[in-house]
Every structure is written in structure tokens, then in C-alpha cells.
């Protein structure tokens, strides 16, 4: 598989990088909290918690490195193979999950599913800003999915 590319304006890269710095430390907690960890087996529960926590740390590192290395305008993130692309996809999902739980907890699921159509005029500036980033991370995900598997979307 040829390398996969994600491109964005330099301004978008700066904005998304800033948001990642804020949200990444909380992503691990969100990831573990959301997981339906089996509670009837302490050993299994500990294994799940450790695995998800370690993965969240790795995802934070992956995103920070990728955005830091995306120089120029447009800024381009290069992913060398399918494994890297899948890891990046998961990391983007983790960030969106963290934003959902920490910033958009008051938005009903049905409205968040069509986030691009949300009326953000009444939102505080920080929340509107976070919503724009949430949508951008989603666009990056969709671009990557289309490169990985053009038939994945209906």
C-alpha cells in the first residue's frame, strides 16, 4: 500500500495542535471510563485498564509527533503503511471521544451525530472553537478511511 497523506492548512494545523495539547492528557481517563470493563474478574479488569491506558498514552504521542512534523502550507501528515494509518485513525477517534465527554457532554447524541449542522452561534467561544476542531478531526478521519478503504462508506 502506498503511503497515505492527510493535508490541512498551516492555520488548521496550528489550531488543532494547540487543542491536542489541552485534550490529550485527559484522553486516557475518558478511554478507560467509556470502556465497558468486565467487573466480575479483577485480573481481566486490570488488564483492560492497563491496556487502554497505555494505548491512550501512545495515541497522544502519535498525534503530537505527527502534527509537529507536518510542516509547510498545506501541512501534510504522511503515514507510511496501513498499520500506521489505523493507529492514526484510532487516535483521532480518541480525541473526538474526549471532546465529546469533556466539552460536549450536554449535546444530545442525535445532534452530535450531525455536528456540522449544529447551530453554534449561541455557544461560548471556546466551545465553538472546540466544535470546529472536532469537525476537522472528523474530516481527517474520513479522508483517511477513504484512502484505506474507498468502499467503507455507503
Amino acid at each position: 500500500m502506498p503511503e497515505l497523506r492527510l493535508s490541512m492548512t498551516a492555520e488548521a494545523r496550528t489550531v488543532l495542535t494547540d487543542l491536542l495539547r489541552l485534550i490529550a492528557p485527559a484522553a486516557a481517563r475518558v478511554s478507560v471510563n467509556r470502556a465497558g470493563i468486565p467487573d466480575n474478574d479483577a485480573e481481566v479488569a486490570a488488564f483492560w485498564t492497563d491496556t487502554l491506558t497505555a494505548q491512550a498514552a501512545e495515541e497522544a504521542r502519535l498525534l503530537a509527533t505527527a502534527f509537529a512534523n507536518a510542516k509547510g502550507d498545506p501541512a501534510v501528515i504522511l503515514l507510511r503503511n496501513e498499520a500506521q494509518a489505523c493507529a492514526f485513525l484510532r487516535a483521532l477517534s480518541a480525541v473526538r471521544m474526549a471532546l465529546r465527554d469533556l466539552v460536549f457532554a450536554d449535546i444530545p447524541d442525535a445532534e452530535l451525530e450531525a455536528a456540522a449542522e449544529l447551530d453554534d452561534e449561541q455557544m461560548p467561544t471556546e466551545k465553538r472553537h472546540a466544535l470546529a476542531c472536532y469537525t476537522c478531526f472528523g474530516l481527517l478521519q474520513q479522508s483517511l478511511v477513504l484512502q484505506l478503504d474507498p468502499e467503507a462508506f455507503d
Binding site: S93, R96, E113, Q141, Q142, V145, L146, D149, A152, D154
Partner: peptide
């Protein structure tokens, strides 16, 4: 179901 992950993303995850 969750409101965050896109349909295409879920397909890629299931295949993987």
C-alpha cells in the same frame, strides 16, 4: 451505537 464514530470508520474497525 455511538454518535462519534463514522460509519466508514466502524466498517474499517470491524474488518480489522
Amino acid at each position: 451505537n455511538d454518535p462519534i464514530n463514522f460509519t466508514g470508520y466502524v466498517v474499517v474497525a470491524f474488518v480489522s
